[in-house]
Amino acid sequence: MTILVTGATANIGRMVVDQLIARGATDIRALTINPTKAALPAGVQVARGHLGRPAGLSAAFEGVDRMYLAPSPDNVTEVLELARAAGVRHVVDLSGEPESWWGSVCNAVEGSGLDWTHLWPADFMENTLTWSQQIRDTGAVHEPHPGTASAPIAMNDIAAVAATALLEDGHLGRAHSLAGPQILTRADLVAHLADALDREITFRTSTREETITALRPTMGDNTAWYVDNVLLDFAPPPESLPTTSVEDITGHPATTFDRWAHANAARFLAD
C-alpha cells in the first residue's frame, strides 16, 4: 500500500512523512518540486512534481492507494481526476468547512468519487511567527483585539492526525474538526511567548493601519488581506471547541501553546 504525501517538503506535508514513519509505514512516496534538496528520510520514495502543475503528476500517482492532499484549490479537480484514474482510493485532505477559504478543496474531494477524510484545523500556532520581527524590533505585538480567542493547534498535531487517518480504519467519510487543547486569547498567546522568550512583550491594541505596518515585514503582500479577513473578522469561538480532538484521534495529548512556544523560542529571536 503506497501512500503519497503531496507538498512533502512544505511545513505540514514534511511532518506527515515523519509521522507516517513513526507509525511504522514503509511504503511512502513524497511529492516535491526539488528532490535534490528535499532531504527526506532514507527509504522514502521521492517523486518530482507540484500540485500547481497537474499535467506532470501521472507518474507520481502510479501504484498509490492513499494520499495526503495539501490544499491546492486552483488545481484540485484536475489533481483528483488524475489520482482516481491511477487507482488512488482514499484521500486525506487538509481543507476547511465548505463555506471557508479552503472549502473548495473539500467540496472537490467529495465530488471526486474517492473515499475521503477531511482535516479542518483551527488557526496554527505557527502563525504567531508573523509577530517575530515586531517582537525583536519593538518588544510588542500590535493587533486590534487582545481578547479575541481561539484554540490554536500545532502543525505537527495536524500531521499526526493525517498519518492516523491514512493508516487506520474508521476515518472514511469523516470530517475531523481539529483544535489545540486550550482556548487562548491573543493577549494570552503574547504572555506565553514572553515567558518562553524570557523577555517582556507588550500587547498594543492597534488600528488597522498600525497592524498592517507591524506585520508587513514578515507577511509581505498578504498583510492587508490577512488583517481584513482574519484579524478584523475573527469569529468568536463556538461554545464547544474540539479541544480534545487530537488526543481522541491519535491517542496522544495535543501540544500546548506554552510547550510549543518554548520549543520554538529561537525562531522568534533569529533574524
Rank of each mutant, 00 (worst) to 15 (best):
M1Y: 14
M1C: 13
T2L: 10
T2G: 05
T6M: 06
A10I: 10
N11R: 13
N11S: 15
G13R: 02
L20I: 08
L31G: 02
L31A: 02
N34Y: 10
K37Q: 14
A38F: 06
G43L: 06
G43K: 07
G43N: 12
Q45A: 15
A47P: 02
G49A: 03
G49W: 02
L51P: 01
L57T: 01
S58W: 04
A60Y: 00
F61K: 01
G63E: 01
V64I: 09
M67A: 14
Y68R: 02
P71N: 06
N75Y: 13
T77F: 07
E78T: 11
E81F: 07
A83R: 00
R84W: 03
R89E: 13
R89T: 12
H90G: 07
V91D: 01
V92W: 00
D93M: 10
L94E: 03
G96K: 03
W101S: 15
S104N: 11
N107L: 06
A108V: 03
E110V: 14
G113L: 04
P121T: 08
P121R: 11
A122H: 04
D123I: 14
F124P: 01
N127A: 11
T130E: 06
S132Q: 10
I135M: 06
R136Q: 08
D137I: 07
A140P: 01
V141Q: 02
E143H: 05
P146S: 07
P146H: 02
P146G: 04
T148N: 12
A149I: 10
S150W: 08
P152V: 05
P152T: 10
P152D: 08
I153V: 13
M155L: 12
M155F: 10
I158V: 14
L166T: 01
L167T: 04
D169P: 08
G170P: 00
G170A: 07
A175S: 13
A175G: 14
A179E: 02
P181Y: 03
I183N: 04
I183D: 04
T185C: 04
V190R: 03
V190K: 02
A191G: 07
A191E: 10
L193R: 01
A196D: 01
D198H: 15
D198L: 12
E200D: 15
E200W: 09
I201P: 00
T202L: 12
T202R: 13
R204G: 08
S206K: 01
E209D: 13
M219G: 11
G220K: 07
T223M: 05
Y226A: 13
V227Y: 00
D228A: 05
L231H: 04
F234A: 13
A235K: 12
P238L: 09
E239I: 13
T243I: 09
V246K: 00
D248I: 08
G251N: 12
P253M: 07
T255I: 05
W260Y: 12
A265M: 06
A266L: 07
L269N: 08
L269I: 14
A270Y: 04
D271L: 14
